[in-house]
Nucleic acid binder design. Structure first.
Lengths: 247, 247
DNA sequence: CGAGCACTTGATCGCTTTCAATAGCTGTGG
DNA sequence: CCACAGCTATTGAAAGCGATCAAGTGCTCG
């Protein structure tokens, strides 16, 4: 039953997320340099990858699975501040410690580099530094979009926003058009959803039920979601898609 | 009454925020290159610097004053997603459009570069690219810290968090120790505070009054704030400072 | 003096939280 | 095979916090 090395070859050329990761822009020789210092690590669902405040010995890329960044207050309130999907980068070159807890939400495989050698390599390799800047800017955009969700949206809109983000991401992996119903499995528990959305798990559950009752989503079991009409979901999210058709 | 060029010389060597800006790491020759393509622009309080979705023709650094990044939903709800202070950078090299409205909260002076030449220069100048990555990582940290504020803090804690951020920033400019009472002027209206905190302006006003009544802050007029005990304010913010003394 | 603006304060409403009970599922052991 | 623990999720009822609606204050500027 143990999760083996997840049949990941050591070969960057075979890497399923190579073109989206921090190494996306690397030339063959740069890739070989990276390859020589990389190693894989597996984390089980629920396991902590990195504690807030710990000094990080490594940086790396999520190959498969989902990890989350969370902040916790002394009294136990927690807020998820990032969702790490395959190809996302973990760690901050130039920083000593992580500012957040990094936790494996599902089983996770990471492609790691010890921090020092990576930093050295990055200093010599503009392709890596440039790609990392690009990815960091994307993360910043995502964080700011999420600030709007947290600060101004209702519980129902928050749930719809989260579902639409997950749906869109799944769509970007399987190259179907956005047309037709979307189907996916929620990678998050109700509690994790609540931590992401700044809600309680009860409110999440209630709003999921409400969206189901109103036909915005179909639920099979607790986790399997079908979205019959993506436009409708985006309306519910307050994003007012619109992006496509004009009367 | 018109705001003149704000007696800013064209000389980078005299620039008050040079060591914190995107050009902080530049050598003399790099600085001269930058100097040859830069120009200053003034914006009046309330003026829009950049509209969301517009293609940006320039990037730049805030020299003086305060600008804000805001997102707006179709029904008018708005959320401030960033506060730009002197030395902060505006614009995303490699991106065509701004994702947010950028507005001058006070009168603002910016040091601008046309986007294309700046991108070219950046590609040749690792010092700039590296510093920009560093600054972007800082912004990402700030955005994520703000997600905790927006998602999990009470109205009172939100106000205290904002005040403590502004107070800390002012402290970092004037090189006093953190000891003793802090005094500063709020650069934001109650409405802007509300937009930042995901509250209504009435709630902001009420909580300001409450903090005043409880002696956490002193108010002189609407904007002039004295914090007699910074530790107390941080407790109110839920940050539980602590960072310094151990029993 | 009155208009306009930023802010304050009061009263009420409603959404989300809180507290609590229940349901469904999975794995374990008698 | 059933009982039960442990976990996730759902649902209900009540409470609380911030939003909304509505005056009213104080200040600046014409």
């Amino acid at each position: 039953m143990s999760v083996m090395t997840h049949h990941i070859s050591g070969n960057c050329a075979d890497c399923p997320i190579r073109h989206r990761a921090v190494c996306a822009r690397c030339e063959q020789d740069e890739l070989e340099e990276l390859e020589s210092i990389k190693y894989y690590r597996n984390f089980e669902a629920g396991q902590t990858i990195l504690w807030s405040g710990d000094k990080m010995g490594f940086v790396g890329t999520v190959i498969s699975g989902i990890a989350s960044l969370t902040q916790t207050m002394e009294d136990g309130r927690t807020q998820m501040v990032g969702l790490l999907l395959p190809s996302d980068f973990v760690g901050r070159p130039g920083r000593d410690g992580s500012a957040y807890d990094v936790t494996a939400t599902t089983d996770v495989v990471m492609c790691c580099f010890r921090k020092k050698p990576f930093e050295t390599l990055m200093a010599q390799t503009p392709h890596i530094a440039h790609r990392l800047l690009e990815m960091t800017l994307d993360e910043l955009d995502a964080a700011r979009e999420w600030m709007l969700v947290l600060g101004r949206k209702t519980a129902r809109e928050k749930i719809a926003s989260l579902l639409s983000i997950i749906a869109r991401r799944d769509a970007s992996l399987s190259p179907n058009g956005p047309a037709g119903p979307m189907v996916f499995d929620l990678p998050l528990t109700r509690e994790a959803m609540a931590d992401y959305l700044g809600l309680t798990l009860e409110t999440v559950s209630r709003q999921m039920s409400a969206l189901k009752k109103d036909g915005v989503i179909l639920l099979e079991g607790k986790r399997h979601v079908t979205v019959p009409d993506m436009g409708r979901l985006m309306e519910e999210a307050g994003d007012d898609s619109d992006g496509g058709l004009m009367a």
